[in-house]
Amino acid sequence: MELFVNQVLAGIATGAIYACMALAVVMIYQAIDHLNFAQGEMAMFSTFIAWQLIQWGVPYWIAFVLTLAISFAGGIIIERLLFKPLAHAPILTHVAGFIALFAIINSVAGLTWDFTIKQFPSPFGSRPFLGSQLISTHQAGMIGVTLVLLLMLYGFFRFTRIGLAMRAAASLPESARLVGINVGWMIALGWGMASAIGAIAGMLIAPVVFLEPNMMGGILLYGFASAVLGGLSSPFGAVIGGFLVGIFENLVGTYIPGVGNELKLPIALALIVTVLVVKPNGLFGRTVVQRV
């Protein structure tokens, strides 16, 4: 029993990583109706910017805030330059755009900061959390940040006019225009927010996996899986999905004999697919309403 509880705890700790990334995935999905394959690379690039600022002697939290602002602006710029012109293009053109963006960001990061791994500091330290060997203060901090972020997003979408406008633009663009909402800017804002959330995810993940241009590859996959499991339309579902994937993965590794680290991912993904067969819209997703 104690082993079980411990493994669940450890699962929640890794799950926080996925949850954070899944939030960014849901954010962009809400805005543009697609998954952004370059999202992980964008997060990685933001993390490098934070690292660079810290190298230059900027205190952690100031670097954190600056990175959020830069990432937010960067997300908007990417949308305006690259994806706004593609607004009416078929989906495969978008996919090509995402892949191009992925490759460009990855190599620019490699050229600028090279491919050696770098330490990234944690603002929470890495002592045992409340004396527990399983969960560190950094992991606890990560869970806390994810939950606060979720609450803030909830408040934003539920209680602010701009949040309401973004939801309207995503659900029925034509009707949104007819009440005077600039749908194009709402999409750009969605990119900016997704990019900033990705930056938070990157900065929280980097102390665990080390910073290098390919650090987000596997994590984005888990982030997608979490978001899909939770239901792509629900930030709340994405976070729960992230924690569930983390827990699944740990329990599978512990209890199914012969499953080492290599097999954890496929088995966790297989479980998710099983859930999706039963509930195609994810655990918390709404039925997808066709766009007119």
């Binding site: 006019r161 309401l164 406008a165 939801r167 309207a168 659900s171 029925l172 034509e174 009707s175 949104a176 007819l178 009440v179 005077g180 909402i181 709404r286 309403v289 007119v292």
Partner: peptide
């Protein structure tokens, strides 16, 4: 210029109150 389109264009997933708020978005 307020346009009530054919088919109504209701934001079906939002509440009645939110629909009214959206009407005043400008």
């Amino acid at each position: 210029i307020a346009h009530v389109p054919q088919g109504r264009g209701t934001f079906t997933r939002m509440t009645v109150e939110e629909n009214l708020q959206l009407g005043a978005m400008t």
